[in-house]
Computed example of a mutant assay.
Amino acid sequence: MEKAKEFVRRVLLFKFKAETAPDLVEQLIKDSSNLVSLVESLKSWHMGKDASIENLNESFTHVFELTFEDAKGIAAYMVHPAHLEFHDRICPHLEKIVVIDYKPTPFHT
């Protein structure tokens, strides 16, 4: 029996600098979404804006979830020219970022 592939997800939380114009934020998000068609190891890309009513977001406004086939896929993404170029463009506009990589784990009771 073939072992099932264990994909890895990367979750990113972004806190943009206050002086970053909203239209620039939107353009950067659009550019980020293009990475899924440029980086072979990036299998899916999802994003959303904070919509919590609890106000526990610590000023993080955007969340991104990227899916890779495995940890090697993340490593390939990290050095891919399209990612590096995007990284160089977005970082000056970020006050803070959180990155968490995880393997989804089934939980059965």
Rank of each mutant, 00 (worst) to 15 (best):
58 E>G: 01
45 W>Q: 08
56 L>I: 10
83 H>C: 06
44 S>G: 02
103 K>W: 15
49 K>L: 13
65 E>W: 07
82 A>Q: 12
2 E>G: 10
96 K>H: 08
26 E>L: 06
15 K>N: 01
67 T>I: 13
109 T>D: 12
2 E>D: 06
80 H>M: 11
73 G>P: 02
85 E>P: 05
44 S>A: 07
9 R>L: 10
6 E>F: 09
9 R>F: 04
61 T>D: 15
62 H>W: 07
23 D>L: 05
56 L>Q: 09
38 L>M: 13
104 P>G: 08
25 V>F: 10
61 T>M: 13
16 F>R: 07
93 H>V: 12
90 I>E: 11
102 Y>W: 08
71 A>L: 13
87 H>Q: 12
5 K>G: 00
98 V>P: 00
14 F>S: 03
79 V>E: 14
9 R>Q: 07
75 A>P: 04
99 V>P: 04
37 S>M: 03
62 H>C: 02
8 V>K: 02
1 M>L: 11
21 A>P: 01
9 R>V: 04
8 V>I: 08
2 E>R: 00
40 E>G: 00
100 I>Y: 07
53 I>A: 09
25 V>G: 03
43 K>F: 06
103 K>Q: 13
13 L>Y: 07
74 I>R: 07
14 F>N: 07
97 I>V: 15
76 A>V: 10
80 H>Q: 06
109 T>Q: 12
101 D>N: 13
82 A>T: 09
85 E>V: 12
81 P>W: 15
66 L>D: 08
6 E>N: 11
62 H>M: 09
73 G>D: 10
30 K>T: 07
86 F>I: 14
43 K>H: 07
64 F>S: 08
84 L>V: 09
15 K>Q: 06
5 K>Y: 04
71 A>E: 13
86 F>H: 14
42 L>V: 05
83 H>Q: 04
53 I>H: 03
70 D>Q: 03
57 N>E: 14
94 L>R: 05
100 I>E: 03
82 A>F: 00
47 M>R: 04
51 A>P: 04
86 F>V: 05
46 H>A: 08
96 K>V: 01
36 V>Y: 03
102 Y>M: 03
77 Y>K: 02
50 D>R: 09
84 L>T: 06
